[in-house]
Write a protein that binds this DNA or RNA. Structure first.
Length: 378
RNA sequence: GGGGAAGUCGCAUAGUGGCAAUUGCAACAGACUGUAAAUCUGUCCUCUUCGGAGUUCAGUGGUUCGAGUCCACUCUUCCCCA
């Protein structure tokens, strides 16, 4: 069942490794570089689907296997006809495998060769995730892009643990690939499986993992286990190491990253896809991302700033900083919505603009110009 | 007019002899990277070289080694009966 899911490179920056492409799926084309809003439990928090599509212009969103499996449960999703129908999002969806929960729910799980035993963070009940089980669940969710089940070790893990963890992730990958090919999509459209590079902060492990993944990828590759405690410079170095090995003609997805600066740096090192909770979570917590830097809208200094949110999209000209300051301070739900919407709009605009500059051939100059301002705290 | 209750750091509260003094809210900052997050952390009398130092619990006086806590009076607020 090949053919509806493929990647085309359409442009390459001369001075850097930055690329522009199109990832085609049966739910629509995804221009790359792309940012994918995170919708863990089937909703991008505080943002309507129609806002995501029309205002933010999101091309693809994430769902999470672990969270959707616990709630609403895969039976409900199957009866609904998959996540796209269930949550009324008819553009592409990527599901994370639960590998990150192996990391973030470390106190509630135990890893074995077979898989991972979780204690539900909701009711304490016991659940077993194996590579096979995760593939089955991702089939049931119906994501266009399924992620392999991996272990995401802490960024400060020592070499011996990182190596063991990487090797386990590789063995799990082979089981994922096998199960993936033994099963068929449930809803009549093609799904693909992205393997995940691990190796923590160690260049030789990263290289080794990238080689392993390169031989097993069909549509695209992911780089996991970064931005989990290691220094930013180490993350950049690992991206370079990995992307030197991963196939040129397939999209590279840097999982869970990151700040606007992280994203531009990663694009310049050949990354094509990103996801991160930062625009939504930080937005709900009062942080706005703009082309001029970040704003903590809760700060008193914005109390009388009656200008529009800088670089706003949907919100531009309608809502002022002072109004958003008021809404967030007053715990008004609309404040969370506006902040989330603004930040997602900015992130999509960031990668969209980057793409345009790659196609125009001046990405590096543009990046150099814009980067320092992104890191300013207003 | 008679009787009763009460005044604590913005507000509300705890405190019945060792206290710069509980908790909540508010305020002011900070954090947040494949979402256990509309969450979490810190500060929140004044000064500080962050070790401390100095002033506090309506006011004044007293008892005591020691008082937010006990006593007297004053002021203020609230409640009940006339």
């Amino acid at each position: 069942m090949a053919g509806t899911l493929f990647f085309n490179l359409v442009g390459k920056d001369a001075a850097t490794e930055a690329r522009a492409g199109v990832l085609t799926t049966s739910h629509g084309d995804i221009p790359t570089p792309i940012f994918m809003p995170v919708g863990t439990v089937g909703s991008v928090k505080a943002v309507h689907q129609h806002e995501l599509a029309q205002d933010v212009e999101a091309r693809i969103i994430l769902g999470n296997t672990y969270h959707l499996y616990l709630r609403p449960g895969i039976e409900t999703l199957q009866v609904a006809g998959g996540l796209h129908k269930f949550n009324a999002w008819n553009r592409p969806i990527l599901t994370d495998s639960g590998g990150f929960q192996v990391f973030s729910l470390a106190s509630n799980r135990r890893i074995t060769e077979e898989g991972c035993v979780f204690r539900s963070h909701i009711d304490g009940s016991r659940h077993v995730f194996t590579p096979e089980r995760v593939m089955d669940i991702e089939r049931a969710i119906g994501a266009d892009i399924m992620m392999a089940f991996d272990e995401c070790p802490d960024g400060n893990s020592d070499y011996s643990y990182a190596k063991k963890s990487m090797e386990l992730t590789h063995r799990w990958l082979d089981r994922c690939v096998k199960r993936f090919h033994e099963t068929d999509p449930l809803y009549g459209y093609e799904q693909c499986l992205f393997p995940i590079v691990q190796g923590c902060r160690f260049a030789d492990l990263r290289r080794q993992s990238a080689e392993y993944i390169a031989q097993r990828t069909e549509v695209g590759c992911a780089i996991g286990g970064l931005a989990v405690g290691e220094p930013t410079e180490v993350m950049y170095e690992m991206i370079e190491v990995v992307n030197a090995v991963l196939p040129q003609d397939k999209p590279r997805y840097l999982m869970g990253v990151g700040t606007p600066a992280n994203i531009l740096e990663a694009i310049s090192r050949g990354v094509d896809m990103f996801d991160c909770v930062m625009p939504t979570r930080n937005g709900r917590n009062g942080m706005l991302f703009t082309w001029e830097g970040t704003i903590n809208i809760k700060n008193k200094k914005w109390e009388r700033s009656f200008e529009s949110i800088p670089g706003g999209l949907y919100t531009d000209g309608e809502y002022t900083l002072a109004y958003l300051h008021h809404l967030i301070k007053a715990d008004e739900i609309l404040g969370l919505q506006i902040a989330s919407l603004h930040n997602l709009g900015f992130y999509l605009s960031l990668v969209g603009t980057a793409r345009q500059h790659i196609l125009d051939g001046d990405f590096d100059a543009w990046k150099t110009r814009v980067l320092p301002r992104l890191m300013v705290r207003l």
